[in-house]
């Protein structure tokens, strides 16, 4: 039996959650296939596939995570159940003393079942009200605009240098950005599996977000220069908000929109790296005719 690669990021999430809650990842058990009645859990149990049942009349103590397959609780769970993918069902008369977090996948709780705290997360934008969606976008745009305005006041030359790389060296910026971005992203995910490097992995992922945010500020600066606003910081801030909105709108165009988004992100990311965050102008190697 081979588990799909998609389960790996979910395993990383489980590792992060378990580490954060003080659990011992070394004692974590993972089930990938078959039918298993569980009567005891060391510290944490991850259901990655197959079906795991807590039989009626049995009490298990620990954290249960579902990232694939099915978890059926007929007995008693003294701890939390987190569903990231797959399904969890708490049947009539069964008890979960802690929380049942249904982040994704399916979670059903029978009328006669007892759950300490049931939380359902609706991560899909479609589930949000338009006010929440647009409010969230506006908050992001405001934050980006504030960052761009600050950078354009304090580091205008750096933004201009990165912008020059975006405009004049778009191809090499895109290639470097996509190559480095994809490589680093996967590398940081894999780092998490070493457990020792888990903090480095989190830091690395945060670093990627910083580079991305910086590149968005550069796009804002570039757009701002073309807007009929005199003050550079105000123009850049407005440009950043317009850029974010344009990126969001591009997402509504099937296939092509995503490709353009991808290219913009790649070019921006690469330009930031190539210019050392705008500290050094990128000069391609000179090739004689």
């Amino acid at each position: 039996m081979t588990v799909s690669t998609e389960i790996i990021p979910l395993l990383v999430v489980v590792l992060l959650l378990l580490s954060a809650s003080g659990g011992d990842v070394e004692r974590m058990e993972v089930v990938f296939e078959g039918t298993h009645p569980v009567t005891a859990v060391d510290d944490a149990l991850v259901v990655g596939g197959g079906e795991v049942t807590v039989p009626a009349g049995t009490t298990v103590e620990g954290q249960l995570y579902v990232i694939g397959g099915a978890l059926v609780v007929d007995g008693r769970v003294r701890g939390d159940v987190t569903v990231l993918s797959g399904t969890a069902s708490v049947t009539d008369g069964a008890v979960v003393t802690g929380r049942l977090d249904a982040v994704a996948g399916g979670a059903t709780v029978a009328d006669g079942a007892t759950v300490g705290d049931l939380r359902r997360v609706e991560p899909t934008p479609a589930g949000r009200s338009p006010a929440v969606r647009y409010g969230f976008l506006a908050a992001q745009a405001l934050a980006l605009a504030a960052l761009t305005a600050w950078l354009s006041r304090r580091r205008p030359r750096a933004l201009a240098t990165v912008g020059d790389s975006v405009v004049n060296h778009g191809l090499v910026s895109g290639v470097v950005g996509l190559l480095a971005g994809a490589t680093l992203l996967v590398l940081f995910v894999y780092m998490a599996f070493t457990l020792i490097l888990l903090p480095v992995s989190v830091l690395g992922l945060a670093g990627l977000v910083v580079v991305l945010g910086y590149s968005f500020a550069v796009y804002g600066y570039l757009l701002g220069r073309r807007l009929p606003v005199e003050r550079v910081d105000a123009a850049s801030a407005l440009g950043a908000a317009v850029f974010l909105l344009a990126l969001e709108l591009l997402g509504t165009v099937p296939v092509l929109g995503a490709l353009v988004q991808f290219a913009l992100v790649g070019v921006g990311f690469g330009a930031v790296l190539l210019t050392y965050f705008g500290l050094h102008e990128f000069e391609p190697a000179r090739i004689p005719e």
Partner: peptide
């Protein structure tokens, strides 16, 4: 670490 997972042989990445 997780012998039952089958990871290590199937990823095309």
């Amino acid at each position: 670490w997780l012998p039952a997972s089958g990871v290590g042989s199937g990823s095309v990445l």
